[in-house]
Every structure is written in structure tokens, then in C-alpha cells.
Design a binder for these strands. Sequence first.
DNA 1: CTGAAAGCGCTAACAC
DNA 2: GTGTTAGCGCTTTCAG
Lengths: 337, 337
Amino acid sequence: MTYTIQDIAKLAGVSRSTVSRVLTGSPKVSPEAREAVQRAIKETGYRLNSHARSLASGRNEAVAVLVTQPGEELFDDPTIRGLFRGVNAGLGDLEEALLVLLAGNEQEQRRAVRFLDKRRIDGAIYLSPHLNDPILPTVLDTDVPIVVCGYLPGIRLGSTLRTVTITDKEGAISAVAHLQACGANRIAHVAGPEDTPGSALRLVGYQEALGEDFDPDLVVHGDYTQASGKAAMQELLDRGAPFDAVFCASDRMAAGVYQVTNEKGIRVPEDLQVIGFDGHLLGRKLEPPLTTVAQPIEVIGQQAVEMLIDMINGTDPGHREFPTKLIVRGSTRSVAD
Amino acid sequence: MTYTIQDIAKLAGVSRSTVSRVLTGSPKVSPEAREAVQRAIKETGYRLNSHARSLASGRNEAVAVLVTQPGEELFDDPTIRGLFRGVNAGLGDLEEALLVLLAGNEQEQRRAVRFLDKRRIDGAIYLSPHLNDPILPTVLDTDVPIVVCGYLPGIRLGSTLRTVTITDKEGAISAVAHLQACGANRIAHVAGPEDTPGSALRLVGYQEALGEDFDPDLVVHGDYTQASGKAAMQELLDRGAPFDAVFCASDRMAAGVYQVTNEKGIRVPEDLQVIGFDGHLLGRKLEPPLTTVAQPIEVIGQQAVEMLIDMINGTDPGHREFPTKLIVRGSTRSVAD
DNA sequence: CTGAAAGCGCTAACAC
DNA sequence: GTGTTAGCGCTTTCAG
């Protein structure tokens, strides 16, 4: 037997409305009525039908995190893990359910789009967009509120789309400045994927900070993973252009650089200064500990939900941007030296 | 403007029922009517309200994968990735949406349970249970169909619970037998977590295969991760009891063992034979390539959805078990030697 | 093959 | 505070 609000009403000796009121937590219920209803609910094991509620109320009580990274990459990415922690924190004690919508391959994407279209969530958080992400047009076009964690340059954003970002460019500039202050003369850059705006901005910052000294030979693109960082470092070495410092667009790529320096006996920071980007725990465990441009990743996640909830409630949270922060550890020579 | 079935009916010059029929894919619609409706839908951009549908039809058109591993562990686990691939494949072109329900910490668990309770999914797949998982009682108790990927020994399973498993014990036995055939005399075991039934079964198989030769000093528990495999290997070495082979309950732990053998200059397989469990890609990339007990992990994922769909449709798929398969590579001495 | 009619279980004005 | 009354948008008999 599956009970309805009607049954509870009868059992508690009140009307359906009153039951509904205690269900929705309305304050306009007498203590006695409330208790009678709650007892009836407990006795029967009644559970509310959320479709009926959603149909009547127009709310879904669910938000989703749309994950477009292919599984392989996603599951390895500490940034995404941090984001999730933040999202959880931001959700706090809200009734809102949190769904993860995988959209890493075509099949998943079709499913995810269908889910969006069916309006089964009140809003979504879209993680670190790639500009060529096949699902992006749909996301831009949908009328469900979406908070994007990352930049969408050159795209006109409708009222249902807000971004939360970090100062990628300034972060890159601070990295280069630090290296220069530490005596580096030729600074290489292991950049991120070419189609992610954040990575592009870091490259721009790097280039701007270097000005005249910019040398395209010292730039190699990776995809944020450790393996790609290792490959990039090898490529830099192979090219033969000398350099005494590397600015990596992710901590994981910096870890890849370390693999090569270890193999080749290149000393960090004596022979080569290295700086990462992210501020993940992993950088602290490297030997030497990695100097890095930290981004407040959990804060981003937390802000993303809060902004989303705002949008769902009809208030515009605007776009938000957070500063990065240089964390100096052992992979760069202390400025004081 | 958001259209309803009513609007479409008017536009297409048919009744609501007819519109509904084309929406549900009923064959009892004339080609003309169908086309008129489809045109109206296209013109208006009509999208169906799935809550209304669910309320009327009693189906959710969504299944979830319940993930109880904490993020850290989850996102690192190739087994889970394989399971997801299988689930996706199994879902095929069904309308069913696939949700990931995170239940890795208390907060997430409360949310997940609430979601189950609200019956917003038709069923769920529950990954690799730990016996002390705080969410397990809820899962066992709920009336939504659940397929468990793994054993639940000693637990009476209701009609809404089915398991899909592999022959862990037999796999372990085959591993030990292979090592023995390869000349190993003292076989150590890096076991998995004590509270996971699968790992327990592998230990039992190991012990059974060894019989008289079983020596508790040669068993160390890890948690399936590479780091724990490394620690376990060090522990084994520290204990001082000699051994010439290690059977690891996961490929990742075997990779951890490799770290130690590399450091210490222990040659694999000459000084020490190593065998893993899982059959993940990573084992093939190790040097030497890892002999392992492969489990058909994607098949498991695929079967899990199929079983779940069966249950949702009211037919009992029964429990299913799949065999493991020994894959001999370079980390054990060929039997022929 | 099609339409009319009766809900699915709940929320939300609106009166009292 | 509480009950009454309309729906929310769809599916699904049941006649025809």
C-alpha cells in the first residue's frame, strides 16, 4: 500500500491542505495539527510523491552538475574533486538534491540534453567549458539557469547563464613576475589545452608579463594531466632552446615536469625553477614542494551553487570572479636569496 | 510561453489523447495525425513536462548509480570507470536517464537517501558495497529495485535486490595455482579492505589454495589503492618472512608493489613473481607487464543495467555471477620455463 | 484509429 | 489556523 496525502489527512483528522502545510514546512499550522500529521506519517510510513509536488509547485528540488570531461580525465582531476567539495558545502542543508549528469561521450550527452530538456532540474552547474564542447550550444540555449565555472569569451550570455571564474591572467602574470624576481631569465610555459579559455588566459598573462622576452619556442601545450606535462617538458628539452624556469598551467603538469627533471638529474630549483597552477595538495607532496598559483577551488564550487540557487529564486547573482594567490614553496628560489 | 499538450492538440487539430499517443510512441496513430502533431511540436518548440508524465504513468524514466566511495577514492578507481562504461553501454538507446548519486560523505548520503525515498528514480545500481557502509541498511530496506555490484554475504535479500558478481574466490585460487605452477614456494598476499566481501573472498581463495602452506605472516591488507600496495609491500619486507611471489587483490596495489621492487632493485619476476587482480589497462603498461586475474568489469556494468531494467519491468533477473580469467604476462615466470 | 473523461498526488490561492 | 476548490500537464481506460 502506498499512502497519499489524503490518507494522512483522514488519519490525522485534518484536511489535505493542512497535511500539505506541514509537508512544506509552513508556519501556519497549529502544534496539535502538526503533531497529529507527523504521527500519521510515521505510522503509515507515508512518503511524498515528488512528481506530484513538482507538477503542482513548478519546482524540481534538484540541481545537477554537468560533467563533460570524458571519464578518464574527469576522474583524475583534483580540480573537479575540489569543485564537488565546494558544491556540497554550498548546498548545505537545502532540500535540493544534487545530481551528477555525465556528458563525456556522445551517448551521455544525448541523455544529458534530454534530461535538461525535460526540465527535471531547477538548474545546473557546468564545469570548466571547452569551447568546442559539443554540448555547449545546448547549454547556452537552454532556459534552465546555469552557472558556468569558467570563462566563455566572446559569447553573449543570456539571463539564465552566469559565470564564476578566477583571475587566470593575473595569476599567470604573478607567476612570471615571481620567477623573474627569483632571477629567472628564460621562462618556458607548459600551457593547458588550446580550447579552454582559462588556459588561454594564462598563456596571455604569461606572454604579457614577458613582453619583449616572449619566445614561442618556449611554449608547449599539454592537457593539464601529469603525462602531458612530462611530454611537454621533454619536448622543451628536445627543442634545444635554453630556459631556466617553467611555468606550468596546472600542478599535475608540473608533476610531469618533475618526472623528467628527476630522470635527467636536473636540479629543482637550482638548475630549473618550476611553478604550477592550482594549489592542489599534490604540489605540497612533491620534492621539492611546488611553488604554485593557487585558486580557491572549493570557494568556486560553493559560490556556483549559491549563485545557482539565487537564479532559481529569481534574483540575479551577476558574474563573479576570484583572485588567485601565489604560494611560494621550494621549487623556486626565494626572492630573498 | 510554455506549451502544453493541449496547445499542441489544438494546433494539430486532434485531441490531447492523440498527442499523448505520439508522445509515448504508440502505434495506434494514423500517419497524418502523427505528422500534424510532430509539426506542431516542432513549430512551438513544445517540450513535455516529465513530472506530469511521471505522475500519470507512475514511471520515473531515470535510474541512478549510487556511488558510496568517497570522492578521493572513487575518482581514482579504474574499476568504477569500467563499470560506468558498461552501464552506459547497457543503457543503449533507452529513454531512461542516468543519474549519478554521490553518497561519499554524510551530507551526500542524507541527500541520496532522500532522493531514493522520494521515488524519483525507477531503480539504482549500487557499486561495490562495503559491509559497514552507513547507507547499506537504507539500500537494503528501500522498495525501489536495486542491483548490487558485489556480494552481500549473510544478508537476506528482498525481491527488490539482486546482485551481479564475479567469482572472486575461484579467481584467487587460479592466481595461486598459477604462481605455484611457476615455481613459487612462498606466496604472499596483499589483500583488499577487510570490510569488502569481494576482497574477503579473494583472501579465502588464497588461503584455501595454499592449504597447509598458508602463513598469516604473509598477508597484509591494503585498500586497493597503489599507495596502500606500496605500504603493504614494505610491511611484508619488514616482517622478514621470506617470500618469492605476491598475489595482489588489485592491479593498482600491484603497481604499488612494483614501486618498492624498483626502489630496492628486486627483479620481477626473477626474484619475485607478482600477480594482480582486475585486468585493468594499467597492468599492461607496467614493466614488466603484470600477470593478472581479469574480471569482465564492463560486462558487469552492462548486466547491472539490464537486470535493473528487468526488475523495473517486473521480471526477476535473478542473481548473476561471472567468471574471472587469468591473463599471463611478464610478472610471473612462464609455466613452460 | 480517435476523443471524452477520469484521474495521478500534490500545492496554492481563497474564503472562512 | 483550517478547509475548500482549482488546477499542475500528462496518461490511460473506455466507448465509439
